[in-house]
Amino acid sequence: MFGLNKNSTTEENQTGMLARLRQGLAKTRSKLFSGIESLIGTKRAIDPALLEEIEARLLMADIGVAATARIIEALSSAMRRHELNDMDQLLDTLKARMVELLEPVTRPLLIPDDTAKPFVILVIGVNGSGKTTTIGKMTSYFQDQGHSVLLAAGDTFRAAAIEQIQHWGETTRVPVIAQQSGADSAAVIFDALQSARAHAIDLVIADTAGRLHNKNNLMQELSKIRRIITKFDPSLPVEVLLVLDAGTGQNALSQAQQFNEVINITGLVLTKLDGTARGGVVFSIAHTLNIPIRFIGVGEKLQDLRPFQAEDFVTALLDIRE
């Protein structure tokens, strides 16, 4: 079928993961592209009205005005060249165009063996995007790859955020470094780095408080956290991971841009893809910022985290059978 996780080291339960991804995306697919499928089924003529139909579907997937225009433009120029003679060709072109847009950002997160330890994953995002849940899932994911993990309870602001991450620590049996609520987030993360180094742990995943990207003072706090990590050891490899809710509309682009300005984002996670939300805004983000999309979240269970694959993402969305 479609080669999900070619680069992933978790070869076991491959089919299980495939099924889950498909299942998760199925809901997305059935709601969104059932329209396109039914268009295809009805053997309509390929005309501008059909393109308009497709345009509407793309817009409703949060792909955005500009990115949709680019995709439609490619389709209509192919149409003018008489390359689209039947629905299969139309769908192939549509899919190819969409995959092309996401291909450059399909780069999985790999933990290198030959760099300084610990590898640091700093998890950031707006309130309620799913940071802490994603941390729980990532812990399990990297444990499966044979890495030792330590969590830093860097969200010292929101009520019970520390308890929430401690719960994930217990579930996955990894140590959690925490201080009291209201403590300095950077200090907690510094502590975590020290502890990880002392115990030769491979990977530190640090939580941060959710913050809206237009709050200047909160953004400054993030850059302080980033500075502290460099101060601890400038040679540490750091992944700054922005967590985006797939239900977010065009504002996700603004989030990515503004977080990126303050603290260089090196990866994205797209959460809550198990609903009817389509996460189409990643097309704009990919076009504008070219930040790799590392994972997608497709459920509430520990194993509901998948490496992002452009081909599969689009294929599953369009539900093209091969």
Binding site: K31, L59, D62, G247, T248, G249, T276, G280
Partner: peptide, 12 residues
């Protein structure tokens, strides 16, 4: 409702 919600707001 999150004011940042996109098109999916109608569905939910």
């Amino acid at each position: 409702v999150d004011s940042m919600q996109g098109q999916d707001a109608v569905n939910s």
